[in-house]
Amino acid sequence: MTAEPIRLPDTASVQAVLKSLEPVSADAELAPALANAFPGFDFTAASIDDFYWRGDARTVLSPSGTRIGDHRAWVERELAELGGDLTAFWNRHRSGDLRFTEWRGASVFAFAPSGLGVADFVQLSLGREIEVLAGPVVDPDYRPHNAEDLLDPSWVRREPDAVAPVLAGPIYRLRGRAGGGIVHMRSFLARGARIEREQRAARRTELENSVLHEVGPAGTRDTAFLDANPDWFDFVPRENRFFADWERSSACAHRIFDHWAFDIHDLEHRDRREIGFIPRPLKMPAGKLAMEEDISVHRLMERIEAIDAEIGLPFAWFFLMTHGHWVDPDVGDAIAEGLRQGRVRLPDRDAAVLLAWADKKYLF
């Protein structure tokens, strides 16, 4: 952060910056262009290897390469002309003369600090996309079963290593699922905690009168819900715990967004507000650390130290564990038990974080 930020990035301004980028220099100019548009913010950018394709912007090309029009509209028009006859449509176009284009990409996150706290930063969720010549408008070998087969072509290769002629791009688009395209993280965490607190409080009367009925060998037993869950109204969302644990641990000397991006969601589902994120590591270890049978806690300590060294971050293994993929949670339990028994040691602050997690777990 070079100076006191004048204003937070807004959707219209970010989209204007992205639209101004020239494809030939877009990758190099992304962060400087954002910093120039929003004085006081020093932006950096990082990509995530999560290949995707878009079904909302396909175009049909003639044999000469002329753009005929939107793929969906063209398919619907052609089908209507043939009275909905799928076989006739297939026979008309199975020669492969007409092809369609498709936009494909991967996620990019841009970050800029807004203060000194662990959550004092802005995150932009972007997509870096190229338009490719995907393939013929019908599968030349198989007749379509229904119109949806034509509208959502599945016969072309879409693997990340698939070779397809590039027609346009790269361009950058503002993405983010359900309101997560532009986020000031401290505000987002506060909003998430407030919404969770309010939604739980709204059920207070219901839960105060709720009883759990248990049936066992000794008969039935009734327990008041709040007696069984005394911390129900003190619940802390896992997203807030992730940031709090970073701040309390030896990882705090590093900026969290140099190591993690956050796939944000903020939506309504079944009359309930759902707000949160999935953390996405910007650097991943070469392999997963699974809990092997009969492995010693000392060997586990060697393995987690190797992960920290590989990532270049103290206590990196712990946050990879909460992510739920790269480090088996049973590893955390085993090391926590080793700490309790005095068989292994961690820095005091890291030991406190791990033991608190082992007592009340959270995973993504």
Score class of each variant (00 low, 15 high):
residue 160 P to F: 08
residue 121 F to Y: 13
residue 13 S to M: 09
residue 258 D to M: 01
residue 166 V to R: 03
residue 186 R to G: 08
residue 26 A to Q: 04
residue 261 A to M: 11
residue 63 P to C: 06
residue 103 W to G: 11
residue 73 A to S: 11
residue 31 A to L: 09
residue 173 R to A: 09
residue 264 I to L: 07
residue 150 L to I: 05
residue 215 V to Y: 08
residue 265 H to P: 02
residue 338 G to L: 00
residue 267 L to S: 14
residue 104 R to K: 09
residue 161 D to E: 15
residue 293 E to K: 13
residue 275 I to M: 15
residue 250 S to P: 04
residue 67 R to H: 10
residue 273 R to V: 15
residue 230 P to A: 01
residue 192 G to F: 07
residue 254 H to I: 08
residue 188 F to G: 09
residue 56 D to F: 12
residue 86 L to H: 13
residue 280 R to P: 04
residue 305 E to I: 01
residue 298 H to C: 03
residue 120 D to Q: 08
residue 335 I to W: 00
residue 233 F to A: 04
residue 132 V to N: 05
residue 7 R to D: 15
residue 270 R to C: 05
residue 316 A to P: 09
residue 250 S to Q: 11
residue 79 L to F: 03
residue 44 T to V: 11
residue 39 P to A: 07
residue 213 H to S: 13
residue 135 G to W: 04
residue 300 L to N: 00
residue 87 T to C: 10
residue 193 A to V: 08
residue 129 E to N: 06
residue 283 K to W: 04
residue 70 D to N: 14
residue 171 I to Y: 11
residue 117 G to I: 00
residue 50 D to R: 07
residue 290 A to I: 06
residue 17 V to G: 02
residue 288 K to E: 13
residue 57 A to Y: 02
residue 101 T to Q: 00
residue 19 K to M: 11
residue 86 L to Q: 10
residue 267 L to D: 12
residue 317 W to Q: 01
residue 298 H to Q: 13
residue 356 A to T: 02
residue 148 E to N: 11
residue 143 R to W: 10
residue 153 P to N: 05
residue 51 F to T: 13
residue 249 S to Q: 07
residue 7 R to V: 14
residue 142 Y to Q: 14
residue 31 A to K: 06
residue 166 V to H: 00
residue 191 R to Q: 14
residue 251 A to V: 01
residue 265 H to W: 09
residue 11 T to R: 11
residue 202 A to T: 06
residue 257 F to E: 15
residue 235 F to N: 12
residue 248 R to I: 01
residue 333 D to I: 05
residue 37 A to N: 07
residue 328 D to F: 01
residue 80 A to R: 15
residue 344 V to C: 02
residue 45 A to E: 05
residue 121 F to T: 03
residue 277 F to D: 12
residue 179 G to D: 03
residue 91 N to V: 13
residue 312 G to H: 02
residue 317 W to V: 02
residue 12 A to G: 10
residue 315 F to C: 11
residue 261 A to I: 12
residue 310 E to R: 04
residue 3 A to C: 10
residue 101 T to Y: 11
residue 184 H to K: 05
residue 275 I to E: 06
residue 282 L to S: 03
residue 137 V to I: 15
residue 159 E to N: 13
residue 44 T to S: 15
residue 176 G to Y: 05
residue 90 W to A: 08
residue 151 L to T: 05
residue 354 L to A: 04
residue 333 D to L: 12
residue 109 F to T: 07
residue 37 A to E: 09
residue 258 D to S: 12
